[in-house]
Design a protein around this nucleic acid. Structure first.
Lengths: 246, 246
DNA sequence: AATAAAACATGACAATTGTCATGTTTCGAA
DNA sequence: TTCGAAACATGACAATTGTCATGTTTTATT
């Protein structure tokens, strides 16, 4: 729920076509599903673009020309209200599809903004090529249906948590979720590799930055977590899980 | 955010197979998309079931065996927290698909409960038949992708509103939405045909029943709405729209 | 290493919303 | 038509969270 940041250019940092040899694309389920020939054809239609901090991949209200996949790094989906408060809907990781929601079909404009969190690499494909590909590949279409179903489920769970749980419970749930999605074991706990400031967390759970800071301070005092953005460690996952569903 | 209702049986009120002549099925986009022959085949695989008030179509945690479509009436999707508070994710209307989220594929269990609001009629199809149908009909698969994209979009918009807006704004937004989805013109305003109690509204926007009642009372005083569940009329749509996005 | 900008932190106070208690009205089934 | 259950309503008070103000620490960049 931070104020809208000053605008900055939507120009990509660098852009190039996909190399013939698909290197590092193994983390993308939608591409894994295709046979070598179809994958090759799809990759020919895709462009890889790199973005850096402070840029935008697309912004709320922009026309929807492309379908996107995160290749490297993390991307956040953000929506903002007229008075400048904003909320982060989801942190996308490699393999995640985006602009896959209504925008892709019915909507002519993006319903939210996509911002890189640090350096990221994104694959893009024109919408019409994407639709053609889905029509030609039932396996791919089924994978997209599966993916969208999961995303819908997730979004509804998020709505439920926002509707029913207290701020500390929502934050605890976020931490549990982050551990599941990007946790690495460490001697004194599980480190969250996704780099999130308190403000990022606040935007993810629908509270103000101050509230997020206060709650995280309490969690730290109670030895549930330690460290900040650059090095956030969950020290007592069990207690956080308990708190998130109490 | 009401307390969990006393449980009641999940038995359907009546059950029969679909008649040969598809009567009243014209409101279902997914079926409209198929050619006559395929539609016939799909209808052969579907069963129509009627449910009444107080019953459940399925409950949170039940195994997911079927794919569903609302044929007549309205159905609500509900999720509840451990301490008995519940939130309504969406009111489904004729043509809406459900159990189409993750449950359909990855999830073996329903992530939420589906309850009829009054008398409803639901079409069911076994999951495997549904998948087979989608694989065989690219048009149907694309329609499901489109539908899921819209639902995802809607769910994310709901999460945003829950995260950023005040209770009165959320309620105003709900009323605007209801008018769009089920409003009929009347001499002194637009009547909402979906029958919702203040408690239903409270569950839809994530507040307590008391808060919903108080806010609706204020709306009534300000001549924005009139009447209750059985006969809810929106008298000043423009002002409600303004309020919802202030 | 210096320095500006973010991020983190904390207190005081206000606004919003929830909780509990109690009563009235409306609706639906016998 | 009556009667019991829901729904609607309202007040007093408590809990949660937001707002604003101010200051310290960390981080990133020159």
């Amino acid at each position: 729920m931070s104020k809208r940041p000053k605008t900055s250019p939507t120009q990509p940092a660098a852009e190039r076509s996909i190399p013939a040899a698909p290197a590092g694309l193994n983390q993308i389920p939608l591409l894994q599903i295709l046979n070598a020939q179809d994958r090759r054809k799809v990759l020919d239609e895709m462009t890889e673009t790199r973005y850096g901090k402070g840029q935008y991949i697309f912004r709320e209200g922009d026309p929807t020309e492309y379908f996107h996949i995160v290749k490297e790094g993390t991307v956040k989906c953000v929506k903002s209200s007229l008075d400048g408060k904003e909320c982060t809907l989801k942190v996308l990781m490699p393999g995640d599809l985006f602009c896959c929601d209504a925008a892709t079909f019915d909507g002519a404009y993006h319903p939210g903004t996509a911002q890189p969190m640090g350096d990221v690499s994104v694959l893009r494909m024109r919408k019409d090529a994407y639709f053609k590909m889905l029509r030609a590949n039932p396996d791919a279409a089924m994978e997209v249906i599966r993916y969208l179903g999961n995303r819908l489920n997730e979004a509804q769970e998020k709505a439920k948590v926002l509707a029913l749980d207290r701020a500390d419970q929502r934050l605890a749930a976020l931490l549990v979720n982050l551990v599941e999605r990007s946790g690495v074991r460490e001697p004194n706990g599980i480190r969250v590799t996704v780099r999130l400031t308190r403000q990022d967390m606040a935007n993810l759970v629908g509270v103000t930055t101050e509230t997020a800071i206060r709650i995280m301070a309490r969690f730290k005092k109670d030895r549930l977590v330690s460290g900040t953005a650059a090095r956030l460690v969950v020290r007592d996952l069990a207690k956080l899980k308990l708190l998130s569903s109490t």
